[in-house]
């Protein structure tokens, strides 16, 4: 999309990224084109600083069909879905829902980007646990996450403290009807 001098060439908007963006916006059912960048969402977003991009900027990328950049932004994975953007937007745009759509679509189309890999890992491990047990077992979830993200020593003390207060049971609680749970996963799309 960028010319050699670094300018974004809009008249060559490739149909594929545009379609993806249009579809994501449509499925989110949010009136994204109404955004006039007042920055209300930006000011209230808890992760905007950490992500280096504000919600309305993210929407702008989608609106212009600049998909690659949207997918590569950290906001896609740092968004916690707190909903502050949505309730403060004068145009009633819940950007968190748009972000959910973009994420889901990127998984569906296998166009997953690499920013904040560990948060995606966290979500995947979380769901894997539910698929296996029907409920989340915090101890093994945390351990698996730390191991796989090679973050072996962080929160070790916290984990210890919680363990000794019996807040991290050794064994998982399990749902009896795990077959129903597995079916539920197999019917829905899951990555």
């Amino acid at each position: 999309m960028k010319t050699t001098s670094g300018i974004t060439d809009l008249s060559q908007r490739r149909p594929d990224p545009l379609d993806f963006c249009t579809l994501a916006i449509q499925q989110s059912r949010q009136p994204v084109s109404r955004c006039y960048h007042c920055q209300r969402c930006a000011g209230g977003c808890p992760v905007a600083e950490a992500a280096g991009i504000t919600p309305e900027r993210f929407l702008r990328l989608l609106h212009l069909g600049l998909l690659d950049e949207a997918l590569e932004s950290s906001l896609l994975w740092l968004c916690v879905g707190c909903g502050a953007c949505g309730i403060r937007c004068p145009n009633d745009i819940s950007t968190d829902r748009v972000i959910d759509e973009v994420r889901a679509l990127s998984i569906e189309r296998k166009q997953i980007a690499s920013a904040v890999k560990d948060q995606r890992l966290f979500h995947r491990l979380f769901l894997r646990q539910i698929r296996l047990f029907g409920r989340v077992h915090e101890l093994s979830l945390a351990m698996a996450l730390k191991l796989l993200s090679k973050n072996w020593f962080s929160d070790l003390l916290l984990g210890q403290k919680m363990f000794f207060k019996r807040k991290l049971p050794l064994l998982p609680h399990r749902v009896k009807d795990r077959r129903a749970i597995r079916e539920l996963f197999d019917k829905g799309s899951d990555r």
Binding site: T3, I7, T8, D9, L10, S11, H37, R60, L64
Partner: peptide
């Protein structure tokens, strides 16, 4: 709004 220069061949 997206912080970039743009070019359009109109």
């Amino acid at each position: 709004l997206s912080g970039r220069n743009v070019e359009i061949a109109a």
